[in-house]
Design a protein around this nucleic acid. Structure first.
Length: 273
DNA sequence: AGGTTGACCTGGACGC
DNA sequence: TGCGTCCAGGTCAACC
């Protein structure tokens, strides 16, 4: 579900609500696949730790922890929301939603809850020195030159390349299609065959669409909400994603629906080349 | 090694 | 109303 703008919105919202609080108690569901690091180790590391900062790397929410004693190593609690994951800050009297998989009781009495119906989300603990950097390059800060070099010699479709998190992390199906529309590039073009001008347009289009989406709190297609349960508004500005069967808002040509990299892809055959 | 495909899950929308 | 089918913001292991 959530891509970079949604994850950033969630991380910022959670940070604003829980930074500085201590984790007094941890409950976990026992659903094994949710826990990439063994559940017991996650519970052990979280309990008693203080939340320093909550941020985003790629599509992952990163919770920086301060251990209860200075002798213990610092750790980061990583939350990947998968397709339907939510991180919610609630007061305890609000009933747990169905598919709640982790609940952290905080020192002010509120709860940080991880809810995930489809269970594609993952919870893990990162303890290496240097902190979690994500699998690929960061799209919001990458320079046009670095961006162009990511695709050199690549034969896969540019859309598939944008979705590959080990190349560039944070972009998913919505923002890949929207960025390609802004850049006027067809999704099936070979990544390594794009001209310098096209790569420059794609870099600008991608950063533009991500920045605008972050401003609007992300896209709420069906069930995405931020830490307070509020929907985003960028879906109102989607030019192609989710618009199969409609016409292009720029030129009125019917939009085309194809499959690229196994994912539904929408583009304008007149505006994109 | 790079690239592609199917499996993993639940629930909502739609058609009959 | 109810049942079946298809589809969904994402990975990842297993293949070619």
């Amino acid at each position: 579900m959530p891509e970079l703008p949604e994850v950033e919105t969630v991380a910022n919202g959670v940070h604003a609500r829980v930074a500085g609080l201590r984790i007094d108690q941890v409950w976990t569901s026992g659903k094994p696949q949710t826990f990439k690091t063994p559940e017991a180790e996650i519970v052990e590391t979280l309990t008693g730790a203080r939340i320093d900062r909550v941020s985003r790397v790629g599509k992952t929410v990163v919770v920086d922890l301060k251990p209860p004693s200075a002798a213990q190593a610092r750790a980061q609690f990583l939350v990947h929301l998968g397709m339907t994951g939510r991180l919610l800050v609630s007061t305890p009297e609000v009933p747990w939603p169905p598919h709640t998989h982790a609940v952290l009781t905080l020192s002010d009495g509120r709860e940080l809850r991880f809810v995930d119906p489809r269970r594609f989300g993952r919870l893990s603990m990162h303890k290496e020195n240097g902190g979690y950097n994500g699998p690929g390059a960061e799209p919001t800060t990458i320079t046009p030159e670095q961006f162009a070099s990511l695709f050199k010699g690549r034969k896969l479709a540019i859309k598939a390349a944008l979705l590959n998190q080990s190349i560039l992390h944070g972009v998913g199906n919505i923002y890949a299609d929207e960025a390609l529309f802004r850049a006027g590039i067809r999704p099936r073009r070979a990544a390594g065959r794009l001209s310098r001008a096209e790569l420059a347009r794609l870099h600008a289009g991608l950063q533009g669409v991500l920045t605008r989406a972050i401003e609007l709190g992300g896209s709420s297609v069906s069930d995405y909400v931020d830490a307070a349960g509020i929907r985003g508004f960028f879906q109102l500005e989607h030019k192609v994603y989710g618009r199969a069967g409609e016409t292009c808002s720029d030129c009125a040509t019917p939009l085309k629906k194809i499959i690229v990299g196994g994912r539904t892809t929408i583009y304008c055959p007149a505006c994109q080349h």
